[in-house]
Amino acid sequence: MTFTVSLVTVGDPDTMTGGYLYHRRVADRAAANDARIDFRSLPTSRFPLPLVAGRSLMRRLARERPDVVLLDSIAAAFVGPFLGPSLPPVAAILHQPPGGIDHGAVRRSLQARLDRAAYDRVARLLVASDDLADTLRKGGLPGDLMRVVPPGRDPATSSVVTPPGDLRAGRGCAVLSVGNWVARKGLLELLSALSALPPDAFTLHLLGDPGVEPAYAARVRARLAAPDLADRVVVHGVRTPAEVVGFYRAADVFALASLREPYGTVYGEAMAEGLPVVGWDAGNLPHLARNGVEGLAVPPGDVPALTEALRSLTLDASLRERMAAAARLRAAEFPTWDDTARMVFDELRRVAKEAGR
């Protein structure tokens, strides 16, 4: 009999960001695990209006009776008040700490209270990284309920799409950065660091959605128009997973100056394709790449140090090759998406069994 999971999230489950992609890739492997994931989405209304839809959704799930209800961390606040004994067993899958990481202070404070109230009522906390698990424990969430289930290192299931032309564009090195244009991703700091390098040192390729934070995107576009970056940056926008892999394989260095990356899936993907990684010594990056071995991690916010790290890798081909080989070897220890899906479904089956289902 098929094991059924109702995954409660917000908005379009096919959105091209880390948490959504995690769920989609696990769902794609459900049949191989004798399971099924049904997505149940709350509307992307202004906070806290999804609470209204949360009540009716929980009533619906009480009638449908899946084996397990799985709460996405972006939805936990909106259904937490309506969790009760009429529901099947409930677990949560966390890609961010309570309150989220991209909201203003007022919303973050209110949502954190709602998130914690929801997590107090679940049977298991599936957590995307060791770094996030540490943060959650320090914030008072019960460590005995946590299971770390990191994302897979293999980003595409279809044929890889190779980007046209030479990404170096006649310069010494092709640098790749994958991430939506939000302030947390540190794109302005990355551009400032790269702008100090010699004109022939690099061509930077940016993959990601420029439309998430319009005001920030306007600042990025203004910076890109400055003379010190002229013709050295190519903006590609959102690309499919198969296209992203093609860029990994065609680039020389991966760089992302993100201050808070609960896992940093793109770091792991880049390493698996043999790219040395550069970023801040923050978030989960230190758990993935060792500074000076698989990449270079510098103190958060230190743009001159970021410049020197990028200078080392863009100008020294032998260093790039050594770190690339080490990155590929290290990433071979990371789980694949098949491994991740198996861990998720095994844990959810334990939750159902413990509840007597």
Rank of each mutant, 00 (worst) to 15 (best):
F254N: 00
R116I: 03
R168Y: 04
G172P: 11
A297W: 04
N284Q: 12
L229G: 05
L176Y: 03
L306F: 01
A76V: 13
A309G: 05
E273N: 13
E321R: 15
G186D: 02
Y22C: 10
A156C: 14
V245T: 13
R116A: 05
A270F: 06
E308R: 02
R36L: 13
A352F: 15
A118Q: 02
D166R: 14
L94K: 04
L190S: 02
L7R: 05
E333F: 01
V160D: 04
A123W: 06
D338S: 15
G18T: 06
T265G: 04
M323H: 11
T9C: 09
P163D: 03
G18S: 07
L191I: 12
A30M: 10
A218I: 10
F345I: 12
A225H: 06
H236D: 10
N33E: 13
S45D: 12
R311P: 12
L256I: 02
L21S: 05
A272Q: 01
D28M: 10
Y248A: 02
R223C: 14
Y267D: 00
V182I: 15
P300R: 08
D346P: 00
N33L: 13
M1G: 05
D115F: 06
R153H: 10
G301Y: 00
A250M: 12
A218L: 11
L21F: 07
R153I: 02
V235L: 13
A76W: 02
D120L: 01
G80Y: 05
T240F: 12
N33A: 13
L87P: 03
S41V: 15
A118P: 04
R137I: 11
F3L: 08
S109W: 14
K353L: 15
G152V: 00
E354Y: 14
P164F: 11
M323Y: 04
D144K: 14
E269C: 02
R137H: 04
P199H: 08
L126I: 14
A27P: 11
V277M: 06
V238H: 03
L125Y: 06
